[in-house]
Structures are given as C-alpha cells and as structure tokens.
C-alpha cells in the first residue's frame, strides 16, 4: 500500500518585492514528503529554508507553483481556512520556544486546543498532560515558563506542537538556542516521536543534528541542491560519543 503524501509541492516559488528589488527566495521547489518521514532541511543562511517552512506551514503563500498539504490544495484557501488548517494539521516548533510568559506548561500546551473549531477534542487538560508526558515533562505540568530550563521550555513547545495530533510537525532551528548535549536530547526526542509515527520536517544548521533524520534536503539560493536519504543515522549514543571525542 503506497503511503499517504503529507506534503507535495509543484514548482513552488516565492518572490519578495522590496521596492524595485525582487528577491527570489524560492524557485522551482518540487518536494514530496510521505507520512512517517523525518526530513532535515539544511543550507546556508539566506538559502530560503525558513521561507519554505512558512509556506509549508501555511503561514505564507507561494508566489507561484502548487502546494498540497495532506491532500488539501492550499493555494486557494482564505485567511480563516489557513488558520484552521494550521490548527488542525500543523505543529510548529520555533528556535526561541515562543511560550506564553508567566503561564504554566499545561496551559501553554493547551493553547492550540483553544482555537480548535472542530470540537474533536473533548478534554484538553487531559490531552495536554499526555503530550507533556510524551516529551518527558509529566512531572512539570504546573511549572511556569520562567521556572523551566531552555531544554525543558523547548520540550513544552514540542508538546504544544503535538497536542492537536497534527499531520506534520515543522521545526525551525529548534536546537539553535540550546547546548550540544540538550540539542542531542531534543533530536533524540524527534526520533522517538517519528518512531511513533509522526511526520517531521526540521530546519537545522548543525550537521550532527541533521544526521538524526532519515532524509536531508539541501537548499541553495532558493533551489533544492540535493535531496538524499541518510544511511548511517545518528543515535543518541553515537552522537554523545562523538561529542566526547571533540571535547
């Protein structure tokens, strides 16, 4: 049985116009990602990684080309439909966590369910608690944002991305603000979630983090440079061993 396509783009392009200057941030992007994949996106600064992620996450719309998310043709959706699709099909993880200040972990994780209009979730507290357990923070549910370490905050953010059971988890440099060891923990958490069936797409600058994924896409100047499967994936153990060799 062929697997379902979570992402399919056809000749996707994004042009920013600043006065007279046109910036072609993305052009001719053809990507197809199936359910259960774990993809890392790499590329130098300004290569268009974030721009791509914003379009895939329905925060931005392409200037040209077509985008299908979980079978939905995104190009023609209006603002409210885009908001709803973000709420139902996407889980975002950001470099700077973006948690609500002075708010408990549980309430932060509940947040996407506040905007759920489908009514498919009956007990949001229960779901948020479960998501926090999934990221290993079952004992921190009532801690406030400022009482958690950076790594813990990012785990809360990951739980928030999981709570609505999205078709796709998008992460833009989730480990960018964390030390190497904590980064490896987060990457390992992604692997665990992927093993549980989540489709994950993560942007990263760090090759050793990208190495945890199953597939790497390199971008350069808004084009796909390479798109390859990884044969010798890192594990937490191998990554920690490599880390010790350096230090």
């Amino acid at each position: 049985m062929p697997k379902k396509k979570v992402i399919e783009t056809k000749k996707l392009g994004r042009v920013f116009i600043n006065g007279d200057i046109e910036v072609h941030a993305l052009s001719e992007i053809n990507i197809s990602i199936e359910e259960g994949e774990f993809v890392a996106i790499m590329g130098s600064s300004g290569s268009g990684k974030s721009t791509l992620l914003h379009i895939l996450g329905c925060l931005d719309q392409p200037s040209s080309g077509e985008y299908y998310l979980d079978g939905v043709f995104v190009n023609t959706l209006n603002k409210n439909e885009l908001a709803d699709i973000r709420n139902q099909k996407i889980g975002f993880i950001f470099q700077s966590y973006n948690l609500l200040a002075r708010t408990t972990a549980l309430e932060n994780v509940e947040l996407p369910l506040v905007y759920d209009r489908t009514g498919r979730f009956s007990n949001s507290k229960e779901l948020a608690k479960k998501a926090l357990e999934q990221v290993g923070l079952g004992n921190r549910t009532h801690h406030k944002t400022n009482e958690l370490s950076g790594g813990q905050q990012q785990r809360v953010a990951i739980a928030r991305a999981l709570v609505n059971n999205p078709a796709l988890i998008l992460s833009d440099e989730a480990t960018g603000n964390l030390d190497s060891r904590t980064s490896i923990d987060i990457a390992d958490l992604f692997v665990t979630l992927n093993n549980e069936g989540k489709t994950i797409l993560m942007i990263t600058h760090e090759p050793e983090i990208a190495q945890f994924a199953k597939r790497i896409i390199y971008l350069r100047d808004g084009h796909v440079l390479t798109d390859e499967l990884i044969h010798n994936r890192s594990t937490k153990e191998s990554a920690l061993k490599d880390l010790e060799l350096i230090t």
């Binding site: 996450g57 925060l59 603002k79 409210n80 908001a83 709803d84 973000r86 709420n87 139902q88 996407i90 975002f92 950001f94 973006n98 948690l99 609500l100 947040l111 996407p112 506040v114 905007y115 759920d116 928030r160 609505n164």
Partner: peptide, 9 residues
C-alpha cells in the same frame, strides 16, 4: 504564536 497555532484574526 497564537496566529501560528491556528488563531483566526
């Protein structure tokens, strides 16, 4: 953040 996780305008 609220907009990203699905809040409408």
């Amino acid at each position: 953040t609220r907009l990203a996780i699905g809040a409408r305008e």
